[in-house]
């Protein structure tokens, strides 16, 4: 009996992949509009045109022959990020830092040849399901101090899921030593639930259990309040309004100097956010309906 109640409870509150796809993604996002989220170059153009802050693009490379020229133009910067425009799940992202005219990627020295190979791989489509792609060279985001104190590596980001312009749930993703600088949950990062009203951090989920401190630094997480939270929600809403995507995840970062920026959009936001928040998305939707935010 206890188990039957448990299963029935899960059915009524948790959003599974099948229902997410059929009930939310397909009816709310026309297939032809996926490109506005899947192609980061397109996303950024639209964000720019609506004055929604996002990392600066130093260069866009769409052909092997243009690599060298574009690279020369970006050499004035000492920190930058190379990413595939259509990559998913943080794949193919290379973070480069220059020290004494030598480039380093995750504290390993890399030659210009290595960088060119990586850009060529991006253009060939290795990170975008075989479609040809373009490589973006972008401004490096220096995470806000609050993140630096918790764990000094990688770039944490904030995911806000919105349905028809209503923010349903939010999650902070933190890298760990296990996740190799990446913040994705399935790569060993932490998912930390966020109180949507206040921006206060809830417990962190490490893939197996809920914890209150960062596993590497033991720095407490639960109870901290995210800076610029109102701004983050405002930016998510604005992004949700400007794109023809009515169920989407907005990924934001908080730069130390520039504040919140929209990194990318996701039409198929993962369901792990429910674990991070210890709450089912269907419960969140139900509550939004009760408050007349959704109809």
């Amino acid at each position: 009996m206890k188990w039957i109640r448990k299963i029935a409870g899960m059915q009524s509150s948790i959003l599974g992949i099948n229902e997410r796809n059929l009930g939310f993604i397909y009816p709310n996002n026309a297939r032809k509009n996926y490109k506005y989220a899947d192609d980061k170059y397109l996303t950024k153009n639209i964000l720019h045109s609506h004055q929604i802050a996002c990392p600066l693009t130093y260069a866009m490379i769409d052909a092997i022959g243009k690599i060298e020229q574009a690279w020369q133009a970006t050499c004035e910067w000492n920190e930058l990020v190379i990413k595939p425009s259509k990559g998913a799940g943080g794949k193919g992202i290379m973070i480069l830092k220059k020290k004494n005219d030598q480039w380093f990627s995750q504290s390993k020295p890399v030659s210009e040849q290595d960088i060119f190979t990586h850009i060529a791989n991006i253009i060939f489509g290795i990170y975008s399901f075989g479609d040809s792609d373009v490589a973006l060279i972008e401004e490096y985001i220096r995470p806000h101090d609050i993140f630096y104190q918790i764990f000094p590596e990688g770039v944490p980001d904030i995911r806000v899921i919105l349905l028809k312009g209503v923010p349903l749930m939010g999650m902070l993703r933190m890298p760990t030593s296990r996740s190799d600088g990446k913040a994705n949950l399935h790569q060993g990062g932490l998912g930390i639930g966020i109180d949507m009203k206040t921006g206060r951090l809830k417990e962190a989920y490490d893939g197996e259990k809920h914890i209150t401190c960062h596993p590497d630094t033991k720095h407490p997480i639960t109870g901290l309040t995210l800076p610029h939270w109102d701004e983050i929600i405002r930016m998510s809403l604005k992004a949700a309004m400007k794109f023809p995507l009515h169920y989407l995840g907005v990924d934001l970062v908080i730069d130390q100097r520039k504040g919140p920026m929209v990194m990318e959009l996701n039409v198929r936001p993962g369901l792990g956010i429910q674990l991070a928040n210890r709450e089912g998305l269907k419960d969140a939707i139900y509550r939004a309906k009760q408050e007349n935010l959704l109809n």
């Binding site: 448990k6 299963i7 409870g9 899960m10 059915q11 509150s13 948790i14 599974g16 992949i17 099948n18 229902e19 059929l22 009930g23 989920y205 259990k209 809920h210 369901l271 429910q274 674990l275 210890r278 709450e279 089912g280």
Partner: peptide
């Protein structure tokens, strides 16, 4: 649109 069998296991911690 039902939950997949493995999702019951995955989301056991949520509730």
């Amino acid at each position: 649109i039902g939950l997949r069998v493995m999702e019951y296991y995955r989301f056991l911690n949520v509730t």
